[in-house]
Computed example of a mutant assay.
Amino acid sequence: MSETTRISTLDGSKDFMAYVARPEGEPRAAIIVIQEIFGVNAGIRRKCDLLAEGGFLAVAPDLFWRLGEGIELDPDIEPEFKQALDLMGKFDQDGGVKDIEASIKWARSHSGGKNVGAVGYCLGGRLAYMTAARTDSDATVGYYAVGIDELLGEKHAIANPLMLHIPTEDGFVDKDTQKAMHDGLDDHPKVTLHDYEGMDHGFATQFGKRRDDENAELADKRTMDFFAEHLG
């Protein structure tokens, strides 16, 4: 069952929209699904639906709401891809993490106090790393996170398990950045990195030409196993 709801900001002064997918019966845990630069589009909603089928309460907050509510873009349409890049440049990432924190708080209360994790893609992968470092997310996963080398100074704050999926031919994350991620995080007791040889950014997208079925299914299985272990 799916619906949209509204979640209050941490200070309670405003609220924002979120897509919610509920499992049949009581959820085993909750997961915040962190959007790409394309908004809470059909692919992100489908990620939520699949998590709900796995027994999780899945919540995708509209993190671009300060730039315009309900933005949905298609990465396979060039003008919309360019619009998404423009939005990413204007987006307040620190504010976005606070909205993710508010979503975690909402999910805890609406799941009966169950564990709450997070999974993010692209920009959401970077925000997932920030979420692991700055919030009480019980377990966090990032797919093709961008710019993690800039955030390694926060790694000491990662107290709960974090998994990152890294495509080796990511057009937005060069080899030096990938090396910096491994050099900085391979020995972290809470962090697991998985490389995907020959894969490009967006390989695990739910819909569209960027997807690679074999590697997407492998990454998603690792993610589900990770959440089963750390969330319940």
Rank of each mutant, 00 (worst) to 15 (best):
3 E>L: 14
4 T>E: 14
4 T>D: 13
4 T>K: 06
8 S>M: 13
11 D>K: 11
17 M>V: 14
18 A>S: 02
20 V>I: 14
20 V>Y: 05
23 P>H: 07
26 E>K: 15
27 P>F: 15
28 R>V: 15
28 R>N: 06
29 A>K: 04
29 A>W: 10
31 I>N: 00
32 I>H: 08
32 I>S: 04
34 I>N: 06
38 F>E: 10
39 G>M: 10
39 G>I: 05
39 G>Q: 10
41 N>L: 12
42 A>G: 08
42 A>M: 08
42 A>K: 10
43 G>S: 15
44 I>M: 15
45 R>Q: 01
50 L>F: 01
50 L>P: 00
51 L>W: 12
54 G>Y: 12
54 G>A: 14
56 F>I: 01
56 F>H: 08
56 F>G: 04
58 A>G: 03
59 V>I: 15
60 A>F: 12
63 L>H: 02
65 W>Q: 06
65 W>E: 06
69 E>Y: 14
72 E>T: 07
74 D>E: 15
75 P>R: 00
76 D>Q: 04
76 D>H: 04
79 P>G: 11
80 E>I: 03
84 A>Y: 01
85 L>S: 11
85 L>K: 12
86 D>I: 05
86 D>C: 05
86 D>F: 06
89 G>L: 05
91 F>L: 10
93 Q>N: 06
95 G>N: 09
95 G>A: 11
96 G>L: 01
96 G>Y: 00
99 D>T: 14
104 I>M: 08
105 K>S: 07
106 W>H: 08
108 R>S: 14
111 S>A: 11
112 G>R: 00
114 K>C: 03
115 N>G: 07
115 N>V: 09
115 N>W: 08
119 V>Q: 13
120 G>D: 09
125 G>H: 12
128 A>D: 00
128 A>I: 01
129 Y>R: 00
132 A>D: 00
136 D>R: 01
139 A>W: 06
141 V>A: 03
142 G>L: 13
143 Y>V: 09
144 Y>R: 01
145 A>H: 12
146 V>Y: 11
147 G>P: 12
147 G>I: 12
147 G>T: 09
148 I>V: 11
149 D>H: 12
150 E>T: 12
153 G>Y: 07
155 K>R: 13
158 I>H: 09
159 A>Y: 03
160 N>F: 02
161 P>I: 06
161 P>W: 03
163 M>K: 08
165 H>Q: 14
166 I>A: 05
167 P>A: 09
168 T>D: 00
171 G>E: 15
171 G>I: 02
173 V>I: 15
176 D>V: 10
176 D>C: 05
179 K>T: 11
180 A>G: 04
180 A>E: 10
182 H>R: 12
183 D>G: 09
184 G>R: 00
186 D>C: 06
187 D>E: 01
191 V>T: 06
191 V>H: 11
192 T>G: 03
195 D>L: 13
196 Y>C: 05
197 E>N: 03
199 M>F: 06
200 D>L: 04
200 D>F: 06
200 D>M: 12
203 F>C: 03
208 G>L: 00
210 R>Y: 02
211 R>P: 01
212 D>M: 04
215 N>S: 12
216 A>Y: 09
217 E>R: 14
219 A>F: 01
220 D>V: 11
221 K>I: 05
222 R>C: 13
225 D>T: 11
225 D>R: 07
226 F>T: 03
231 L>E: 02
